[in-house]
């Protein structure tokens, strides 16, 4: 059985899914690929929007998400963030 993902890992996974198809991914696809429950997914997406990691794009074909510079920075520096947080006990 796989180990339970922590908050930083879940955020990384969601951002990575969006990064993979930047600007063209729909909420249902993110939900499917991030492997989260509906409720948890909504919570994380709201937090990521609020904190400026992703932006919502609305068009005729529906809603899509893309990463902001902050989102890209997070995925690039993820390993450092995890190492710093785990060694200094900063997990939430």
């Amino acid at each position: 059985m796989s180990k339970k993902r922590d908050r930083l890992q879940i955020i990384f996974d969601i951002l990575n899914v969006i990064k993979g198809k930047n600007g063209k991914i729909k909420p249902t696809n993110v939900l499917y690929k991030s492997n989260l429950s509906n409720q948890m997914f909504s919570g994380y997406m709201n937090e990521l929007l609020q904190k400026g990691f992703i932006v919502e794009n609305k068009s005729k074909s529906g809603k899509t998400y893309s990463l902001t510079q902050k989102g890209f920075d997070y995925t690039n520096k993820y390993r450092m963030i995890v190492d710093f947080s785990s060694s200094f006990g900063l997990g939430e």
């Binding site: 450092m80 963030i81 710093f84 900063l90 939430e92």
Partner: peptide, 18 residues
């Protein structure tokens, strides 16, 4: 300073407090 950088990147509240 590094903890605040981690806070800026991750939005983690605990990094800010630290």
């Amino acid at each position: 300073a590094y903890a605040l950088k981690v806070h800026r990147l991750s939005g983690q509240r605990q990094s800010r407090l630290f």
